[in-house]
Protein backbone atom coordinates (compact mmCIF):
# COMPACT_ATOMS: atom_id res chain seq x y z
CA UNK A 1 0.00 0.00 0.00
CA UNK A 2 1.36 3.33 -0.99
CA UNK A 3 1.14 5.87 1.71
CA UNK A 4 -0.58 9.17 1.06
CA UNK A 5 1.44 12.24 1.89
CA UNK A 6 0.43 14.16 4.98
CA UNK A 7 -0.85 17.63 4.27
CA UNK A 8 0.50 20.31 6.53
CA UNK A 9 -1.16 23.69 6.82
CA UNK A 10 1.34 26.42 6.09
CA UNK A 11 0.84 29.98 7.19
CA UNK A 12 0.09 32.38 4.36
CA UNK A 13 2.10 35.15 5.93
CA UNK A 14 5.31 33.61 7.17
CA UNK A 15 5.13 30.28 5.24
CA UNK A 16 5.90 28.20 8.34
CA UNK A 17 3.60 25.45 9.57
CA UNK A 18 1.02 27.36 11.58
CA UNK A 19 2.13 26.01 14.92
CA UNK A 20 5.48 27.72 14.51
CA UNK A 21 4.04 31.17 13.86
CA UNK A 22 4.57 32.08 17.48
CA UNK A 23 8.30 31.82 16.93
CA UNK A 24 8.24 33.86 13.76
CA UNK A 25 8.67 37.56 13.38
CA UNK A 26 5.16 38.41 12.28
CA UNK A 27 2.92 36.76 14.84
CA UNK A 28 0.22 39.42 14.70
CA UNK A 29 -0.25 39.19 10.95
CA UNK A 30 -0.07 35.40 11.10
CA UNK A 31 -2.81 35.30 13.72
CA UNK A 32 -5.00 37.54 11.64
CA UNK A 33 -4.46 35.46 8.55
CA UNK A 34 -5.25 32.22 10.34
CA UNK A 35 -8.37 33.66 11.93
CA UNK A 36 -9.70 34.73 8.57
CA UNK A 37 -8.77 31.67 6.60
CA UNK A 38 -8.81 28.76 9.01
CA UNK A 39 -10.86 29.73 12.07
CA UNK A 40 -10.94 26.17 13.35
CA UNK A 41 -7.21 25.84 13.52
CA UNK A 42 -7.02 29.28 15.01
CA UNK A 43 -9.17 28.23 17.93
CA UNK A 44 -7.17 25.08 18.37
CA UNK A 45 -3.91 26.90 18.50
CA UNK A 46 -4.50 30.13 20.29
CA UNK A 47 -7.66 29.76 22.34
CA UNK A 48 -6.93 26.49 24.09
CA UNK A 49 -5.17 26.32 27.42
CA UNK A 50 -1.54 27.22 27.76
CA UNK A 51 0.74 24.85 25.88
CA UNK A 52 2.12 22.09 27.96
CA UNK A 53 5.73 22.63 28.64
CA UNK A 54 8.34 20.99 30.78
CA UNK A 55 10.14 24.24 31.41
CA UNK A 56 9.84 26.22 34.58
CA UNK A 57 7.53 29.22 34.54
CA UNK A 58 10.35 31.70 34.62
CA UNK A 59 12.05 30.18 31.61
CA UNK A 60 8.76 30.20 29.77
CA UNK A 61 8.22 33.85 30.53
CA UNK A 62 11.71 34.67 29.45
CA UNK A 63 11.14 33.02 26.12
CA UNK A 64 7.87 34.75 25.45
CA UNK A 65 9.36 38.06 26.49
CA UNK A 66 12.26 37.81 24.11
CA UNK A 67 9.94 36.69 21.36
CA UNK A 68 7.64 39.63 21.96
CA UNK A 69 10.60 41.96 21.80
CA UNK A 70 11.76 40.52 18.53
CA UNK A 71 8.29 40.75 17.05
CA UNK A 72 7.91 44.36 18.12
CA UNK A 73 11.24 45.21 16.57
CA UNK A 74 10.29 43.56 13.34
CA UNK A 75 6.97 45.35 13.28
CA UNK A 76 8.59 48.72 13.71
CA UNK A 77 11.11 47.91 11.06
CA UNK A 78 8.40 47.03 8.59
CA UNK A 79 6.47 50.15 9.37
CA UNK A 80 9.53 52.25 8.83
CA UNK A 81 10.27 50.61 5.55
CA UNK A 82 6.73 51.00 4.36
CA UNK A 83 6.73 54.68 5.18
CA UNK A 84 9.97 55.11 3.35
CA UNK A 85 8.66 53.22 0.40
CA UNK A 86 5.57 55.37 0.21
CA UNK A 87 7.64 58.47 -0.19
CA UNK A 88 9.46 57.09 -3.16
CA UNK A 89 8.28 57.80 -6.63
CA UNK A 90 8.70 56.12 -9.94
CA UNK A 91 9.96 58.24 -12.78
CA UNK A 92 8.79 57.65 -16.30
CA UNK A 93 10.77 59.63 -18.81
CA UNK A 94 10.20 60.26 -22.45
CA UNK A 95 13.40 60.81 -24.34
CA UNK A 96 13.33 61.88 -27.96
CA UNK A 97 15.49 60.10 -30.46
CA UNK A 98 15.03 61.13 -34.06
CA UNK A 99 12.31 63.25 -35.58
CA UNK A 100 9.13 61.64 -34.31
CA UNK A 101 10.60 58.78 -32.38
CA UNK A 102 10.84 58.50 -28.63
CA UNK A 103 12.00 56.01 -26.07
CA UNK A 104 10.61 55.63 -22.59
CA UNK A 105 12.87 55.17 -19.59
CA UNK A 106 11.50 53.91 -16.30
CA UNK A 107 13.68 54.39 -13.26
CA UNK A 108 13.53 54.22 -9.49
CA UNK A 109 11.94 50.81 -9.57
CA UNK A 110 14.44 48.80 -7.60
CA UNK A 111 13.00 49.67 -4.19
CA UNK A 112 9.73 48.06 -5.06
CA UNK A 113 10.98 44.53 -5.15
CA UNK A 114 10.41 43.95 -8.84
CA UNK A 115 12.51 41.89 -11.15
CA UNK A 116 13.66 44.47 -13.69
CA UNK A 117 14.60 41.98 -16.34
CA UNK A 118 11.26 40.26 -16.15
CA UNK A 119 9.34 43.49 -16.25
CA UNK A 120 11.32 44.57 -19.30
CA UNK A 121 10.42 41.30 -20.98
CA UNK A 122 6.81 41.87 -20.13
CA UNK A 123 6.82 45.35 -21.54
CA UNK A 124 8.48 44.10 -24.67
CA UNK A 125 5.82 41.51 -25.34
CA UNK A 126 2.99 43.75 -24.24
CA UNK A 127 3.83 46.68 -26.46
CA UNK A 128 5.50 44.61 -29.16
CA UNK A 129 8.66 46.65 -29.01
CA UNK A 130 12.18 46.23 -27.76
CA UNK A 131 12.73 46.76 -24.04
CA UNK A 132 15.91 46.34 -22.09
CA UNK A 133 17.47 46.98 -18.73
CA UNK A 134 20.42 49.32 -18.77
CA UNK A 135 22.34 51.57 -16.44
CA UNK A 136 21.68 55.28 -16.58
CA UNK A 137 24.04 58.12 -15.79
CA UNK A 138 23.76 57.59 -12.05
CA UNK A 139 24.62 53.93 -12.62
CA UNK A 140 21.16 52.91 -11.52
CA UNK A 141 19.17 50.35 -13.41
CA UNK A 142 16.42 51.55 -15.65
CA UNK A 143 14.14 50.00 -18.22
CA UNK A 144 14.34 51.46 -21.70
CA UNK A 145 11.37 50.83 -23.93
CA UNK A 146 11.51 51.64 -27.60
CA UNK A 147 8.52 53.54 -28.87
CA UNK A 148 6.22 56.16 -27.45
CA UNK A 149 4.28 54.13 -24.92
CA UNK A 150 4.60 56.38 -21.87
CA UNK A 151 0.94 56.52 -20.96
CA UNK A 152 0.43 52.80 -21.24
CA UNK A 153 3.45 52.17 -19.09
CA UNK A 154 2.14 54.59 -16.50
CA UNK A 155 -1.18 52.84 -16.43
CA UNK A 156 0.43 49.45 -16.05
CA UNK A 157 2.66 50.60 -13.23
CA UNK A 158 -0.30 52.09 -11.42
CA UNK A 159 -2.07 48.78 -11.64
CA UNK A 160 0.96 46.99 -10.36
CA UNK A 161 1.26 49.30 -7.38
CA UNK A 162 -2.38 48.89 -6.57
CA UNK A 163 -1.93 45.15 -6.42
CA UNK A 164 0.88 45.60 -3.96
CA UNK A 165 -1.18 47.98 -1.86
CA UNK A 166 1.05 50.95 -2.47
CA UNK A 167 -1.51 53.32 -3.87
CA UNK A 168 0.11 56.44 -2.55
CA UNK A 169 3.31 55.98 -4.51
CA UNK A 170 3.53 58.65 -7.12
CA UNK A 171 4.46 58.13 -10.70
CA UNK A 172 6.11 61.11 -12.27
CA UNK A 173 6.06 61.69 -15.96
CA UNK A 174 8.90 63.73 -17.37
CA UNK A 175 9.46 64.83 -20.89
CA UNK A 176 13.03 65.37 -21.84
CA UNK A 177 13.61 68.26 -24.21
CA UNK A 178 15.12 67.69 -27.53
CA UNK A 179 18.63 68.82 -27.93
CA UNK A 180 18.97 70.65 -31.14
CA UNK A 181 22.18 69.59 -32.67
CA UNK A 182 23.15 71.91 -35.44
CA UNK A 183 26.10 71.53 -37.56
Amino acid sequence: MAEEPVKVLYCGVCTLPVEYCEFGKTLKQCKKWLKENHPKEYNNLYNSDAPTSSLSKEREEEISKSLAKMQLKEERKQERELRKLKQEKIIVKRIPRTKHKNVIAVCNLEQFDVDMKKLAKKFASKFATGASVSKNLETKDEIIIQGDVGEEVEEYLQDMLKKKGLDSVKIEFIEEKRYLRRK
Binding site: S54, L55, L67
Partner: peptide
Protein backbone atom coordinates in the same frame (compact mmCIF):
# COMPACT_ATOMS: atom_id res chain seq x y z
CA UNK B 1 14.11 19.01 21.55
CA UNK B 2 12.55 20.96 24.39
CA UNK B 3 10.65 24.19 24.05
CA UNK B 4 13.52 26.39 25.06
CA UNK B 5 15.56 25.33 22.08
CA UNK B 6 13.04 26.15 19.35
CA UNK B 7 13.91 29.80 19.14
CA UNK B 8 17.59 29.11 18.65
CA UNK B 9 17.07 26.40 16.10
CA UNK B 10 14.87 28.67 14.05
Amino acid sequence: VDRGAIKFIL
